[in-house]
Design a protein around this nucleic acid. Sequence first.
DNA 1: CATAAACATTGATGAGTGTAAATATTTACC
DNA 2: GGTAAATATTTACACTCATCAATGTTTATG
Lengths: 116, 116
Amino acid sequence: MSLELTPVQTVACCSPLTRVPLSEKEADGVAPLLKALADPVRLRLMSLVASHEGGEACVCDLNDAFDLSQPTISHHLKVLHEVGLLDREKRGVWVYYKARTEALQNLAALIGGQAK
Amino acid sequence: MSLELTPVQTVACCSPLTRVPLSEKEADGVAPLLKALADPVRLRLMSLVASHEGGEACVCDLNDAFDLSQPTISHHLKVLHEVGLLDREKRGVWVYYKARTEALQNLAALIGGQAK
DNA sequence: CATAAACATTGATGAGTGTAAATATTTACC
DNA sequence: GGTAAATATTTACACTCATCAATGTTTATG
């Protein structure tokens, strides 16, 4: 196991933004998560997956929702997966991505939280 | 008054990510807000201001908290101000930035919210 | 095994971004 | 009014990033 924390692990560790100043290390850990979400296409991808039944969706369904090339969608999914916002599972020829809602909730608590 | 909605106005309008797929227009409106937060320096700036007494802080205090040039900090504050996350008020020679906590809370509700 | 389908990877490119140096602007005070 | 302090703006640059075309990989099926 690695000593490096993924962004989703990092975000679960800090008090809300408004309570105490975020340390440099914490900020460095959380920023990648926000960066991953800070793109219109990835925001919609995340929302499509999360709001889909079971909180998961097949890539085949996602490609059709955008006027973008397949590699581009694949790239965005990879970004969301790498920061830990999406889980990835292959079933036969299809790949399913699943939303990590705890990660979203931890991030939300960091941004808008009232207390630790 | 403008017909254009600022990012902070936009973010107050949508159901949570996990409830219903975000529309293209909604995503385009919200992404700039996340983009503004998706930088370690701006995250810390936002946190420094928001956690300061009264939810506001003088630029003079903020500059010293970073190992960055004054124009760079000024630039980041401008970014946060332009998306509506920070209010700006000049008092004499000093400029005070104030956190818009409702904006943060709306954003948090969008990301981690359970229902509309 | 050959072929097709689903998805990922590579490589290239144009647009955007964080940073600092230099300069400008505003305010206070002598 | 002249000077100094606080903050913003401009300009330039290195770097990142979103996108696509082309190609690769994996799985199923005939």
